[in-house]
Design a binder for these strands. Structure first.
Lengths: 191, 191
DNA sequence: CGCGAACGCTACGAGACCGTATCGGCACAT
DNA sequence: ATGTGCCGATACGGTCTCGTAGCGTTCGCG
């Protein structure tokens, strides 16, 4: 990716991280084993331990490598920016591999402080994207200055995350639009 | 509870179910072990296996025993009924022991079909409470007849579940009221 | 092209856990 | 009261997993 010339060590490291992420997505954090990671990645167990001190650290790094932050648009329309923002964060974070990991990660995060920090940081980061969009709208006067931004983000993100994680249904663009429109109506925003 | 005269076998069985629920709430489904259940409940491992064929069955029964369905009010006010409904389901299902179990259960439910059915049934049951309240409002004419009930329930339940499970914050009565009011404004319901 | 560092393979000890078996003792119904 | 059936304690075999170690092989830098 970054360099087409990859040293042997780097290739092994990357294979391990990939296999770990795949396994966490498939069987969850608890059932992920070093032996299976070795088997899938084609990297020897001894080599894995040369790169990562423990299974916990490996999992944290593997998850960390899966996270990418989408960019927020600035069209001047609160509605469009929110839809774009939540479509982006939902697709980036809850579709594909990371989406399959989330429940297991959140569960494991209850007991593993390091994973807890990671999951919380991930959640906060996504909320901050929406917060940015909303605060820009407040600055424009499209939203009242005394709006409860935190509540607003929860009202928007809640139904989408609930649909994905609890109901295990796809988050369609229609749902995103419906959620955004419902919440914005409350604040009398022109559409 | 149901009978103050409890045979020895019944007492043992109940102790096991209790200890199992406690353990699942504390350390999750995966880290819950029969030996620890035996140790905590004061019931011998051999006795546990006389009552339950496997750890999986035991966990399912223990979780099942934790579930109770709150009753929905019928005050004639959609807003009041919704607030009562979601306060009730939230308190009953996400506070206390069951709340501590949920993430681990939902994770385990991804791989265990039996747990999957249980969790899904639990979710559906709670949604049906809200659906009942909404349909009564439609019948009264308080909501348009063509309202998307399923979407409406998601809009209401989503932020509350998200607050509890993802943000790991308490679901206050203020939050419930704010969510209900926001969603109902969209449908121009008098408050 | 040569040498050292890193790799793959295999085996190992320790510990956790499951599910079964054995056996002595206590509860509960008759 | 008395015996039968269920319980508690304990031990066991088997499996899985972690993390370490030894050893031959191969990559890649100079």
């Amino acid at each position: 990716m970054t360099e087409s010339t990859q040293t042997r060590s780097e290739r092994a490291r990357q294979s391990v991280l990939d296999a770990t992420a795949d396994l966490v997505a498939e069987v969850g954090v608890e059932r992920t084993t070093i032996d299976e990671i070795a088997s899938r990645s084609g990297v020897a167990k001894s080599t894995i331990y040369r790169h990562f001190p423990s299974k916990e650290v490996l999992v944290v790094e593997a998850v960390h490598a899966c996270i990418d932050i989408p960019i927020v648009t600035d069209t001047g329309s609160l509605r469009d920016d929110l839809i774009s923002c939540f479509s982006g964060t939902t697709k980036a974070s809850y579709d594909g591999r990371l989406g399959d990991m989330m429940l297991s990660l959140m569960d494991a995060a209850q007991r593993d402080p390091e994973l807890g920090r990671l999951v919380r940081a991930q959640t906060d980061q996504k909320r901050r994207l929406a917060t940015t969009v909303i605060e820009r709208a407040v600055a424009r006067g499209d939203l009242p200055a005394d709006v409860d931004v935190d509540l607003l983000v929860t009202l928007l993100a809640g139904p989408l995350v609930y649909t994905k994680l609890v109901r295990r249904q796809r988050v369609t663009d229609e749902l995103v639009a419906a959620v955004v429109d419902t919440v914005l109506t409350r604040y009398s925003v022109k559409q």
